[in-house]
Amino acid sequence: MSTQGHGLRDRTAVAGVGWTPYSKNSGVSTLELALRAVSAALSDAGLDLRAVDGLVTHSVGDSVPAAAVAASLGVRDPKLLLDLNGGGSMSSGAVGAAAAAVAAGQAETVVVWRSLNARSEFRMGGTGRAAPTLVEFQYQVPYGLLTPPQQYALVGRAYLDRSGATAEDLGRVAITQRAHASLNERALMRTPLTMDQYLGSKWIAEPLRLYDCCLETDAAVALVVTSAERARDLAKPPVLIASAATGGGHSFFSNGYTDLSTSAARAMAPRLFGAAGLGPQDVSVAELYDAFTPLVLMQLEDYGFCKPGEAAGLVASGATALGGELPVNTHGGHLSEGYVHGLNHAVEAVLQLRGQAGARQVQDADVALVTGQPGYVSGVTSALILRRDS
């Protein structure tokens, strides 16, 4: 496929991936987690530390900065050093930034990572930390709107009301992904989940039950991004970055977006697919950001896999399960594998496109969609299209 005139299309590749164990208490710092994941990714690519000349990470004030990781790796004069502000919303954006730098010749070997002790140390929305430095937060605190489950409960209710989806439809998302996680040795939650267990679980913030919510996790994951040509000479089959895109979104629900039932991904998706020269019909496997179950249903619609209101039926049909026409979150996702703020979705997509996902391998997987948080609260979203090298 020609890349001329198409920006990033297929000019760069993911050459290596790495991760630490997923746990509830890592027992080490976010710096140590980052170094372990980065080292694993470089080893996977067949590279040593001396190859790294660029570093990109994203965080929400909960992790070690890129400069500290660079110094610890011995990168004295990094050609690229980026600390992006954003949790899952910038996970795909971080990979896109690395790809853009490599394509522009700014750096040759860029490591992208996310490292966090989100269970043992820095709980998202936890009361043991300072309030976010956001102007709008002062208007939420008096009403008790403090945590992501509360914020996304508003989104989930809006979606259910608009689409007609039910609690059982949300449950099918969680149950399907748990079945995928049962085949994934990295996953924190591998015991099969039944509908009775789902419906009987405690409320977190209605309409969200316990199993509608992601797992706060201690872990780090990393990817090595380099040119497509160079990646072909390395240890593992390259996974090409066909496109990367960022978009806007609802910013704490008061920046002009009035319909919470539709995400910013809907506006971004045509740009993402257009840049790759592909469409939703070309996607073999979708790793959709799933901090909460309603987001999976919403993204199936917003990325064009089905019409508005039809996502629940798509999941109920078995289409999103392994063996279905569009397997979704084949590793178990944030709901059952672990929550590494979106970047673990990219790792799973790479393994699928390499044909190295073991028992959960999607047959003939050649194109993967990887999405970040679809634009709620943060006011930004991002996504990637990756494809197998031909």
Rank of each mutant, 00 (worst) to 15 (best):
A220T: 05
A245K: 01
G128E: 09
Y376S: 05
F305L: 14
A41L: 05
A231C: 12
L134Y: 14
A275L: 05
A179H: 14
A231F: 10
A187L: 02
L208I: 07
D83F: 09
A101W: 03
S261N: 08
G358M: 04
E337C: 05
R354H: 01
L343G: 01
A130Q: 14
A242C: 10
R266L: 08
S26K: 11
L73D: 05
A37T: 03
H180M: 04
Q352L: 03
A103P: 04
A264Q: 05
N344T: 04
L116Y: 03
T330K: 06
Y303L: 07
P207R: 01
T12L: 00
D196V: 08
V111W: 00
Y159S: 08
A316N: 14
I175N: 12
G27P: 14
Y339S: 09
S163M: 15
L210Y: 07
R76E: 15
L300C: 13
A267Y: 04
G171C: 12
D161A: 15
L42V: 05
N184Y: 03
S163A: 15
S284F: 12
T226D: 02
T371K: 00
N255T: 01
E32A: 12
P149R: 09
G126I: 14
L297H: 10
D282C: 09
A291C: 14
V283G: 09
L49F: 04
H250L: 08
G86W: 08
A98D: 03
V173R: 09
A269M: 06
L116S: 06
V362Y: 06
R360S: 11
T194S: 15
N255Y: 05
P237F: 02
V221F: 03
F273N: 02
S263C: 01
G96R: 02
D196Q: 14
A242P: 07
S115G: 02
T3V: 09
L369S: 07
P327Q: 14
F305M: 08
G358W: 11
R119T: 02
G156W: 06
A276E: 06
A37G: 00
R388F: 04
G96E: 00
D196P: 11
G88M: 09
P132C: 02
L84S: 07
V367S: 08
